[in-house]
Amino acid sequence: MTRDFGVVWEHADRLVEGLLNTIILTLVGASLALLIGSLVAILLMSSSRPVRLISQGIVDLMRCIPFLMLAYLAYYGLPSLGLNLDNWTAGLFAIVVYNTAYMAEIMRSIWIGLGRESIEAATAFGFRGPRLYTRIIFPQIFLAASPMIGNQLIQIIKDTAFLTIIAVPELTHAASSIQSQYFVPFAAFIAAVLIYWALCMLVEAGVFVVERLAEVRR
């Protein structure tokens, strides 16, 4: 058993490379999903009923689709429509599309609970259009939503493991390649599991810090 872990340690560089890919996919995917999700949240909170119903319908539908299915659709399905993405881009595309719906829903749930006072006060001070969103509404939402965004970040970290199925070289893929070459299944996958654990605890610690900041600003 110790020898097995030694083998994995010798190939730690592969795990680190996989981990970097997992982190990059998570961070880039989450940032894009947050950005697009904010725009979708504006649609979800629209004063026009048809816009609200249609966008809510699409968001609810997206939340019924398993992530792997979406990754498959991006990787195998999009070429049928003439759009060829390599496996890394297809994976990122799937992460963004999938999480946009969740991010939008998270922000909507906070937005509903936001008092009308700050928004009315801002309009009274002449804030309108994009400035109302970027200076008044979204800063409040982002701070209040940080625990939920943190949970979603952990979900994204775990979802990136699915991308090993379409051969994206992320952490699980790295562990899998070490195990299939040297047949050290326990050591290889336990190493990956422990790294995921550390990563998730890091996110939780980050959420804790942001929450403290939000507390100070209040």
């Binding site: 952990i154 775990k158 699915f162 599991v193 654990w197």
Partner: peptide, 19 residues
Amino acid sequence: VSLLRSTPAVTLCLLIFFA
């Protein structure tokens, strides 16, 4: 609970199936 909640299902499945 803490460990399992941060383990991706794919990784867990591979671990169980091969280890």
